[in-house]
Write a protein that binds this DNA or RNA. Structure first.
Lengths: 200, 200
DNA sequence: AAATAAACATACAGTCTGCATGTAGATTGA
DNA sequence: TCAATCTACATGCAGACTGTATGTTTATTT
């Protein structure tokens, strides 16, 4: 009768503590930067001690990695929900880009995923994370478009990487206050330059 | 007779000390990362004390800024020297990009300028630095090409920013071991998609 | 040449990270 | 069911680092 109240299983405790740590860290990492956020502040916000943190995570960087992973998944989910599957290759690319920039508008997300992430975890690990989430959709979409013949045959990894970099920079600029219309126009021009017109 | 030996002017002392600090910091920041390099190590390598560092620079970040500024200038110089001015818009863009990726191959440069730089100084300040050095050439080249009618009318800032982001990512990937040929091909396709054919 | 200012060197306070050790609660095996 | 063990924490400590305050030497000014 008291199974849920006083006696918590170890797995429940772990899950709860890890969750609160990640949530608190996410809030602080997006309000300030990774370097400016100390572990004492994180554990205070999560209501635990530093002992709990270092029991569940190898170090501060491992906690950061968990936060980035979760945030990247959230962004990918937002994009997939906002991008209908019934569009042409060109329109799907632009709609996805639009959704990406919009999702990145959440305060602090660009710094977390586009500035601190690469610096703290390195580009290789960020590529790995992106490849499992946001960029996966992009790469698969590009592959399908290429197979359909609407896109010239190009190295898939490089194409995904460079288009992703352009979307990243657009998100960063728009989030910093640049006119979204300008970046939308340039992205459209780039995509139109790449996608083979169906009439040709 | 002893003007150069025992009696050094204050300006000479400042110049020498600042220079050695920047040189030592540059070496360490490219060997390791910004976060992994401590000021005690920097001043030891420069042969001075931390007092000298904090006399000449407001803080560690200000020294980092000076290093980034110098390195960005060096990259810009390398590009200008390697890019002949007698090429078409398309070829000039690709040659410049090639020179950029090559210049970024110097060990640690990508991390310094493309990872740590944006994270430590912020995108706004990095844009400012880039705008005074590397990206300035790019923007001016694009503006000239647009005026000549070989490029559709697009917002110049956004176009420069997004193309620059693609070059950045290519430099990062190639430096990390990705096949340069793949990235060259994709960049060429993007540029070819944008540049209006002179025959049209 | 005295006074002032600049270029350092030294010492200190505060903070942070990672680890080592200690303890209470949960799980397991007999 | 109960002791043994293991997990999930809490507490305390050592080392390192950053920025500043203060002292000292060397150049510049008057």
């Amino acid at each position: 009768m008291q199974e849920a109240n006083s006696r918590r299983s170890n797995r429940d405790r772990t899950e709860a503590t890890r969750g609160e740590l990640i949530a608190a860290a996410r809030r602080l990492f997006t309000e300030k930067s990774y370097a400016e956020t100390g572990t004492p502040e994180i554990v205070a916000a999560a209501g635990v001690t530093r002992g709990a943190l270092y029991h569940h995570f190898a170090d501060k960087q491992a906690l950061f990695r968990a936060v980035v992973e979760a945030e990247a998944a959230a962004v990918a989910k937002a994009i997939e929900q906002a991008t209908p599957r019934t569009l042409s290759a060109r329109d799907a690319l632009l709609a996805g880009g639009e959704a990406y920039v919009a999702a990145m508008g959440l305060p602090g997300r660009t710094r977390l995923l586009l500035l601190d992430g690469p610096a703290v975890l390195g580009r290789a690990e960020m590529d790995d994370i992106d490849g499992r989430h946001g960029n996966r959709t992009l790469r698969e979409g590009l592959a399908a478009t290429m197979r359909a013949g609407d896109l010239p045959k190009l190295p898939l990894e490089a194409l995904t990487s460079l288009l992703g970099a352009a979307f990243d920079r657009a998100a960063l600029a728009v989030d910093a206050g640049a006119p979204a219309e300008d970046y939308r126009a340039v992205l459209a021009a780039v995509v139109d330059g790449l996608v083979r017109k169906t009439s040709s």
